[in-house]
Each structure stands twice: as structure tokens, then as C-alpha cells.
Write a protein that binds this DNA or RNA. Structure first.
Lengths: 290, 290
DNA sequence: TAATTACCATAGATAGAATCTATGTCTGTT
DNA sequence: AACAGACATAGATTCTATCTATGGTAATTA
């Protein structure tokens, strides 16, 4: 016997009509039904809402109070209904987009400003982490969309390729007199968490190339910066190099191994298609990212 | 199939548990019941709230939205419930007090300041009109309480005497040389709508006393003021005279008819006894009004 | 691969409500 | 005194919310 929104509507009609019988007619129910519905509300609120009279009913002080408050509550409910409808069908709401920080630098700029400008009620929360972690979080519903490098295949995952990249060994073009990144015996700069770096190092080892020292960083931007300063040889994606240091860095050698990266949009295959999610996906796919 | 507040509570529990079966246990209902309750909500809102999964359920974007909004709505409802409880049991709310304007001047001051100071959430709306009109409006539920003169008897009306008054003919004590209210042939000042004035004039006519000219006003204060200025003979209640002009006015003669007024508190016998109404009644009755 | 487990959905039965019809009660009116 | 108009009450009925039992699916384990 919980109060539902019909009961409140009933109450308001009775209050306005001041007559249960006539209110019942208007509402298309019988007088006894309406009488018990009102009694139900009174029990639930613990207060009499009407004085029963020969000529009809009159609101008690509590009844007058609840007339205002009930109207507000009903309005609140209708507002929520329409808001949820909008969230479902219009382009609005909060969506979480996961993306590796370096990948963010050359992808987000292509669609995010326009997307957010076009849809002022749309909110995007960016989460930055390793592609692997992002993908896991997409699979586990913690993140709505991911822009990631070389996603693992997963039956629940939709993978849409966006562009390619090449990870290889780089050194600075014009070594300064003091700092000489000699290929042999050079210092290696890389993010050891990246699969790409791990694979490339292994391949090089098979070719009997070893690096005596290793500088590890979780930021590819930092790695690129250090490489361009002549600190050593960096394992860097081409697109990161191109971002700020295109003129200062060159690939070490054509013989050295490379790793092909695929930058992809990923989202769960059962992802709820709202107006906003469809728009986000289509905007991300629309661009070519060179 | 209208949404009730239990459904919303159910939804919140499921959202927090992310598992219909376990949420059902917590809520003390079965899993299928909860499944259909959720479906009911989804139908009513026109949006899927959860993605069903092997490992449980996950909120959709609309579901996340409704989790916030539903919590707010539930809070709104609980707030209303407690507010109505307060309106019923505590001393607060809006109450309409009807009172003749002149009677107001020597009654309200005795209890109203203290009453409103003691109960900051209590609101009193004053309505001023003839006692007869006030009483009618109390009977017809338009006014909660009346402080009126000589109320008509009515089966629905509770009448509590507060104090007495005497309406008689007054003239100014020291007539100025220019303005002489000679008893015979004098000007009569009165509110013709008052039963008291009508009755006194009739009685005087039977005693063969007639007034050639008549000044009518609906304000007893104005009548008293004019009488005190020597304009003529006023039909005035003693308490109004005492208010500001006690020293300037005297009764015309002991032989002339007088009218006994009873000032009473009135309210409907079926009036809903809330905490506030009980307090208002007791405060009004507590005073002696001299 | 097959069995098991942990989910949610569905179907049919059941119990609890809300509603309906019919009647009762009260009061003011004719 | 009969009637009319209002709400309350009682019992029957119809809905519907919930329950039990079962089915389907995917991950996990033997």
C-alpha cells in the first residue's frame, strides 16, 4: 500500500472540486474508489486531508499544505520523466572517454571542440591511462568509449580503426659535440609499460643489440623531449615525434625493427545507444586523423 | 500500473548492488518480482535503466541519470511526509484570523505578538470585516478563527466569550463655543451597517427622539474622532472610545438606550485540531482583555 | 566437452489491492 | 415525512504484484 502518483493526482482533483463524487466522475472512477484512495493517502501521511461534510469536503490545514507540496512533487516527477526522455533521445548527458595521454594529443583536437560546441548539454569526462587499462575499463563498463592503441580482441568489444602509427627507434638529427648518441653503446629511453617498447627491445636482443643503460618514463612526451636533447635513443611513436620534434629527430636505421600501431575507437557491443552515444561515435569516426 | 515510491527505492537498491538477485534478497522480495518492478519503471520512463549481464546489471546512461534524480525525488517525498507531520503536530502553518477592525485594536495586541514570537513558523493572516461577515466566513470554512461581536448561534459554531463592551450614545465633554452638540436636534454619527446602531436608533425612535441629520461612516475610529471634535452625537462602543478619546467623550445620558456587546472567539465545531490551532485557541482564551 | 554455477527472463499460480456495485448513514431541503 | 445529495461501508470482482518453478545464457570448472 504505497503511495503512487495517481493517488496524488486524485487528491489534487478532489481538492479542486471539493466534492469526492464529482471528482470521481471527472477522473473516471467511482466515488468509493476515490474515497479509499484519499483515505490511503491520509493514512500514509498520518494526517487528515479533508473534513467530510454534507455538502462535500473541505481541506484541513494539512490538506492545504499538501495541496501545494503534492503539486510540486507531481511536477518534479513529470520533470524527471521528461529529463530522462531527453537523456535517452537527445544529445546530452555525461560520457566518459578514455584515451592514452599521448594519443589524446593528436586525436581529441579533431572532434572534441566541435562536438562540445554543437551540443552544450553534453559533458565529456576524459580519463587518461595506458591503452590496455582503458580497454579493460571499457569492457568492464567503467568507461563508455576508448580511443586506444592496438586493442585486444574481445567478443563484447566493437573496434573501429581510426588511423595508424609506427613505433620505432629515434635519435636526434644533429648530435651536439658533447652528447653523442652512438648507436652502439647508447642509452635507451622508453616507457617500459608499453607492449610496443617491450616487443621492440626483444627483437633487438635477438639481433644481438643490447643497451647498457635504460631511462624509463611513463610519458612519451618526456621521452621524446629527452631524445631530442641528445640523451640517447628513444622508442617513440611517429605521431608523437611529429607533434613537436619532427625536425630534430630521425629514425635510427631502416634495418631496426618497427612496430605498427593501430589507433582505434572501442566501445562495448551491448552499449546502450542513446542519442548522445550515437553522436559521439559518429563524430569520432567521421575524421581521418591524417 | 503507476509508479510508486517503492519502485524507486527498489531501483536505487538494484543500482547500488548491480545485481537483481542480491538486491531482491536485501529488499525481502524475490528476484522475479524485482525484475518486473524494474521493467515497470523502464516502461514508465520510456528508457532502459540497466544493461542485463551474465554477472549482474549495469546502469545505462539514462539509468545513471535517473539514479540521481530518483534519489532526489525520494528525498522530496520523505521531506513532504515530515513537513505534513509537522503541520499536523507542531505549531506552524498559515491560519486566517478574521476580526472587525475596531475590535482588532483592543484584542490582537494581547496575544498576537507573543504568539508569533513564540512560534516563528506560525503565520497569521488577518482579515477585517463586519462581525457578521466574519462569522459567515468562519461557518463556510473561508476563515479559520473569528474574533467577533455578538455572533449568531449556529450548530457548527463554537462560541467562546472573551469580554464585554457597551455601545451607547456619546458626546464630547467640553463642547467648544462654535460646535454645540445639543441633544435635541443634534447630528448623529454612526456606522449604519452595525446591528447595534440600527437597534439603538429604533429604540430611540420609539421614545420619539429623532435626528434630523446623519453622518455615516464604516469606521468606528472615524466616528469617534468626529464625535470628539464636537460634530455631533456618536453611537460608539465604549472600548473604542477608551482607546484614544476616553477623556474627551461622555455618555449622552443614562436614560438613553444602550446595547451590550459580547466579544467572542468563534470557530467551527468540526475544525481540524492541529497543534497550531489548539495553541491559537488557548492563547486567545488565556487573556482577560480587562 | 560436459557439468556446474550465477545471472536474469518468462510462465503460471496465488494472494493481496484496488475498484466496482449496492447499500447505509447523515443532514438539509422540499 | 419524503427526498436529495453527500460520504462511508460491505461484499464481490477484477487487477496486478508477487511468488514458485523453470528456461536460457555465458562463464567457470571438472
Amino acid at each position: 500500500m504505497s503511495v503512487n502518483f495517481f493517488d496524488i493526482t486524485y487528491f489534487i482533483e478532489v481538492a479542486e472540486t471539493a466534492n469526492i463524487s464529482r471528482a470521481a466522475e471527472k477522473l473516471g472512477i467511482t466515488q468509493p474508489s476515490l474515497s479509499t484512495a484519499i483515505k490511503r493517502l491520509e493514512t500514509e501521511l498520518g494526517a487528515p486531508l479533508f473534513l467530510r461534510n454534507r455538502s462535500g469536503v473541505i481541506l484541513t490545514p494539512s490538506g492545504k499544505d499538501f495541496l501545494n507540496k503534492g503539486r510540486q512533487l507531481l511536477q518534479h516527477w513529470h520533470h524527471i520523466q521528461s529529463e530522462i526522455y531527453k537523456t535517452e533521445h537527445e544529445i546530452r548527458g555525461r560520457y566518459i572517454l578514455g584515451c592514452h595521454p599521448s594519443v589524446s594529443l593528436y586525436t581529441l583536437g579533431h572532434f572534441l571542440p566541435e562536438l562540445l560546441q554543437t551540443h552544450p548539454d553534453l559533458e565529456i569526462v576524459l580519463e587518461h591511462d595506458l591503452s590496455r587499462k582503458i580497454t579493460e575499463q571499457v569492457i568492464s563498463h567503467q568507461i563508455d568509449f576508448g580511443i586506444v592503441v592496438n586493442p585486444v580482441l574481445h567478443s563484447d568489444l566493437v573496434v573501429k580503426p581510426l588511423c595508424n602509427d609506427t613505433v620505432r627507434f629515434w635519435r636526434c638529427k644533429k648530435p651536439s659535440p658533447t652528447q653523442m648518441p652512438e648507436t652502439a653503446n647508447a642509452l635507451l629511453i622508453a616507457d617500459p609499460h608499453l607492449t610496443q617498447a617491450q616487443t621492440l627491445i626483444k627483437k633487438l636482443r635477438k639481433a644481438k643489440v643490447e643497451f647498457p643503460r635504460f631511462v624509463s618514463t611513463s610519458s612519451l612526451e618526456v621521452a621524446t623531449e629527452l631524445t631530442s636533447k641528445g640523451l640517447g635513443i628513444g622508442i617513440l611513436p611517429e605521431r608523437v615525434v611529429r607533434q613537436y620534434h619532427a625536425k630534430e629527430l630521425v629514425p635510427v636505421s631502416d634495418d631496426w625493427p618497427i612496430y605498427q600501431d593501430k589507433i582505434c575507437l572501442v566501445y562495448r557491443s551491448d552499449y546502450q545507444k542513446t542519442g548522445a552515444s550515437k553522436e559521439i561515435i559518429s563524430r569520432i569516426l567521421k575524421h581521418k586523423y591524417q
